[in-house]
């Protein structure tokens, strides 16, 4: 393809075929803004990565310059030097894994257990439960953290991950509302046919409905895990002895000047802790785009 034809295709895509002036102007303005914004979003990442590859001396010489040599030495040191209390990098990474991936398995299981009957059956109390989900999403109850700490402490769940995981099994949230919409949209014909063939209600759910809802479940799972991966509050408030990478970074930022590798190594730790959500986003972007939508609140 010649340069000219590439330009023509781009122009056609940007301006469209018809003469819609407002669209042309808006698209051109936004295209320019988008390019500027891309620099705003990407440059800090690039800058952090670039400085993580410098030696401490090189970093303090100039934080703007590119690294003279790409030195991955500090990345190796992160595994031994990036520590919070007794937890090293790998311990924090494992904590991040179960806090993010584990919590969302329980959360989505609870959301599905709640959303499925609400979407597919008529039973006394159905509207009330749906109302509770909407109430919880829309009505703000502020400042429950003090009572939350008191309750978690009273139940001996502080720094006790297994019992603490019960708090994730709630489901009255946006995931339940999204699943509700998705389950409602799945045709009832297949499940009715399965039921007529002698399948139990649970079998119908597991073998007919759930496989059809997998795209939605995967989209929610990826989106929620991404949100959870770098969440520090749970580790900071309730699971202080199980720091995840996010909490580790929060604590470590005040110590960077006192450890070997200093700031460049800290930047390396930031980059490493961002890998999992970036990979998840790359893998799940399309699934999330196609399967996440909320209809309305009326049920």
């Amino acid at each position: 393809m010649t340069k000219n034809s590439v330009f023509k295709t781009f122009k056609k895509k940007l301006l469209g075929n018809n003469e819609n002036t407002s669209r042309h102007v808006i698209f051109i303005v936004f295209f320019i803004i988008y390019v500027v914004m891309c620099v705003y979003y990407l440059y800090p990442l690039f800058w952090t990565l670039s400085n993580s590859l410098k030696s401490v001396e090189e970093y303090y010489d100039s934080t703007l310059a590119l690294p003279k040599t790409w030195d991955f030495g500090y990345y190796v040191k992160i595994f031994t030097t990036f520590r919070v209390g007794e937890a090293g990098f790998w311990t924090m990474a494992v904590n991040s894994f179960w806090l993010a991936f584990g919590s969302q398995i329980l959360n989505l299981l609870a959301s599905a257990m709640l959303a499925y009957p609400l979407a597919r059956y008529n039973f006394p109390g159905k509207n009330f439960l749906y109302g509770v989900i909407v109430f919880r999403i829309t009505i703000p109850i502020i400042g429950g953290s003090a009572a939350g700490y008191k309750l978690i402490r009273a139940l001996n769940m502080l720094n006790n991950p297994l019992p603490y995981s019960l708090t994730w099994f709630m489901g009255f949230d946006m995931s339940a509302l999204i699943m509700y919409g998705y389950f409602k949209g799945i045709s009832k014909e297949y499940s009715e046919a399965a039921y007529m063939d002698g399948a139990t209600r649970l079998q119908t759910l597991l073998t007919v409905v759930l496989p059809q809802a997998i795209p939605c479940i995967i989209a929610l799972y990826i989106s929620n895990v991404m949100g959870r991966w770098n969440q520090y509050s749970e580790s900071m408030l309730y699971l202080t002895k199980f720091p995840n990478l996010a909490y580790g970074l929060y604590l470590f930022q005040d110590e960077v000047l006192f450890v070997e590798g200093g700031t460049p190594m800290f930047y390396g730790a930031i980059i490493l802790s961002a890998i999992v959500p970036i990979v998840l986003f790359m893998v799940g972007q399309k699934t999330m785009l196609l399967n996440m939508s909320v209809g309305g609140l009326k049920g």
């Binding site: 979003y41 990442l45 991404m226 929060y250 986003f281 972007q285």
Partner: peptide, 14 residues
């Protein structure tokens, strides 16, 4: 849209 999601993807702390 991939680039604009960077802050959300990286999460608050990073």
């Amino acid at each position: 849209r991939t680039i604009f999601m960077i802050p959300s993807v990286l999460g608050g702390i990073v």
